[in-house]
Simulated assay, not measured.
Amino acid sequence: MARVIVIANSKGGTGKSTITLNLYQYFIANGASCGILDTDLQQSITLLDTNYEKNIALVDPHTSPEALKDIDYEIVLVDTPPYRTGAGGFMSVADFVLIPVNPSPMDAMAIHSILADVQEAGVKHAVVLNRVAPKTSLTDEIRKTIEAFGCKVLQTQINNRVAYSRSLIYDDLDSEANAKASVELSSLANEVLRLML
Rank of each mutant, 00 (worst) to 15 (best):
M196K: 09
T145P: 00
A189D: 00
D171W: 12
S182H: 13
I71K: 15
K152S: 07
V132A: 08
K144Q: 15
A148H: 08
H112C: 10
I19E: 03
I5F: 06
P100N: 05
V162K: 13
N22Y: 02
E176F: 15
N178C: 07
E141G: 04
L197S: 09
M109P: 04
R166D: 15
A2Q: 11
L154Y: 03
I114Y: 10
S113V: 14
V162D: 14
L185Q: 04
S113Y: 05
T20I: 00
P134Y: 03
T80F: 08
L173F: 02
D40L: 03
S187D: 11
L37C: 09
T63L: 10
I158P: 08
Y73I: 13
Q157I: 06
Y24A: 03
M196R: 11
T85Q: 14
M1T: 12
T14K: 08
Y24M: 11
A133L: 15
S165A: 12
S92E: 15
K135L: 12
D117E: 15
A177T: 12
Q157V: 09
E147I: 02
L185R: 06
Y24R: 10
N159V: 05
V78W: 01
L77V: 07
S10I: 03
T145F: 07
S167D: 05
P100R: 05
L37D: 04
G86H: 07
G15M: 11
M106F: 15
D174Q: 14
P103G: 12
P103W: 12
E176Q: 15
D140V: 02
D107F: 07
M196I: 09
F96L: 00
